[in-house]
Amino acid sequence: MLKRVHFPSSPLPYLLVAPQLAITLIFFIWPASQAMYQSFLIEDAFGLGSEFVWFENFQILWEDSHYHAAFWRTAVFSVLVAALSMGFALILAGFAQRVVRGAMFYRTLLIWPYAIAPVLAGALWVFMFNPTLGILPYFLEFVGVTWNHYLNGGQAMALVILAAAWKQVAYNFLFYLAAMQSIPNSVIEAAAIDGAGPGRRFWTIIFPLISPTTFFLLVINMVYAFFETFGIIHAVTQGGPGSSTTILVYKVFNDGFVGLDLGGSAAQSVILMVLVIAMTVVQFRYVERKVEY
C-alpha cells in the first residue's frame, strides 16, 4: 500500500494529485452523481420542469417488458461473445504454446484485431455479410441460407456477436498464451513421463492451472460485451431490426439522446453502474487472491 519510508509531509503531494483529482471530480464523480440524481426525476411532457419521484423510474423499468427483454438479450449476447471469443482463443493458444519456434510469429498475426476499434470490426463484418454483395451470403446461398440481417433479427444478433467476438479473440489469446507459457515446463514434462498424451495434458494439467486466467478473462469479456460493443451495435444494426439487438448500453443511449427520457435513461445508467461495480469487485477479489501467492 505504502512504502516503508516516504518523503516528509509537505504541500507537494497535494499538487501532484491535484490534476487527476480535478478531472475526476468534474468529469467522473459529478456526472455520476448527476446520473444518480436524475434517476429520481421525471420530466414533464414538454421538458419544462421535472418532479422528484424517488424510485418511480426504477419501478417503471422493473415493469417494462422492453427493458426485461433488453436485459436478457444483453445477458445472452455477452455470454455468447465471451464464450465464443474465449473458446476460440483457448484453442489457438493451446496449439500455439506447443510450437517451439514460431509462437511469436503466430502471435504477431493473431493480435491485429486488438488494435481495431469495435465500430470498425462492425464495419468489416457488415461488409462481409452485406446481403446483396457480401462474400459470406454469396456462399451461404449455396447451402440454402438466405442472409439478410436488415430483416432477420436472429441473423442481426449473430452478426454483432461474431464481430464482437472476433475483435476480442486477440486479447484473450494473448492472456491465454502468457498464462500457458508461465507454467513451468517441468510440470508438463512430469505429466508426459506419467504417460499423459498432449490432449490429456491440456485438459488435466494446463487447463486447470490457467483457470485463474479464465476467470479473469470472463469478467473482462463480460464488461467488454456490456459496454465496448456499443460501437458495433450503433454502426451495424442501430439496435434493430425492431429491437432485436438493443442491448442495455445501447438502450441507455437511445432512450436518453434519441428518446429524451432523461430520468429513465439515468435510472438505466445507475443499474449499469451497479452491474459494473459488482463485476469490478469480483475481479478485485480475484486480483487479491493472485497477490497472495
Binding site: 456526472p31 446520473a35 459496454f227 436518453g256 439522446f257 439515468a266 445508467s269 449499469l272 459494473v276
Partner: peptide, 8 residues
C-alpha cells in the same frame, strides 16, 4: 466507464 455516465 464513460458509457454509463454519458448524458451528465
Amino acid at each position: 466507464p464513460v458509457e454509463v455516465r454519458i448524458l451528465p
